[in-house]
């Protein structure tokens, strides 16, 4: 999906620009709106290509360097496209103690990829993340930022099967 879209340069819609103008008013300086605007860009354009980062810089009247610094510092901003379903398995303390490594290994096997990779059909990306802040429900898997607590190999297999059966529509 993203690859196709990225063939043409990306520009925020008029509605988005209006939203951004409102957002900027909530801060003492437009630079504070950078992270929220990057989230909007990621939502609209799939990922933060160099072209998109330049556009964000232009919209907020920042230098490209100021945008790059932020994009590269924070793990949730992506410079590469990822699968339609981003599976983030927490393997931090509480999750590790409750089988997260066994779970992530199982998921990698089911998907036929290694941790960090995307399936060839572009449907799934599997990653390991740090504590998701929900350790009471360990092990925790975030699927496109929706929390699945007390995840099991069976529940994750079911999810994967269901997505595949539905042809991957979100």
């Amino acid at each position: 999906m993203s690859a196709q879209l990225n063939a043409t340069p990306h520009r925020f819609s008029e509605a988005r620009l209006a939203e951004i103008a409102e957002l900027v008013k909530r801060y003492p300086s437009a630079q504070s709106a950078l992270m929220p605007v990057l989230y909007m860009a990621q939502e609209d354009f799939g990922y933060l290509s160099m072209d998109v980062q330049q556009h964000v810089a232009d919209v907020l009247n920042l230098r490209l360097m100021q945008v790059r610094e932020v994009v590269t510092f924070y793990t949730m901003f992506r410079e590469q496209p990822c699968g339609s379903y981003l599976l983030e398995v927490c393997t931090s303390s509480g999750c590790m103690l409750n089988g997260a490594y066994e779970l992530v290994t199982h998921m990698a096997d089911t998907l036929g990829i290694k941790i960090g990779e995307t399936t060839p059909d572009g449907l799934f990306t599997l990653t390991e993340v740090e504590c998701a802040g929900a350790c009471g429900g360990a092990p925790v898997v975030q699927v496109n930022n929706v929390y699945h607590e007390k995840a099991t190999p069976e529940s994750m297999d079911a999810l994967i099967t269901q997505v595949r059966a539905s042809g991957g529509g979100k």
């Binding site: 504590c131 802040g133 929900a134 350790c135 009471g136």
Partner: peptide, 11 residues
């Protein structure tokens, strides 16, 4: 920000 591994109260 609640990032300390083990913390999930503020949520």
């Amino acid at each position: 920000d609640e990032g300390e591994p083990g913390t999930f109260k503020d949520r």
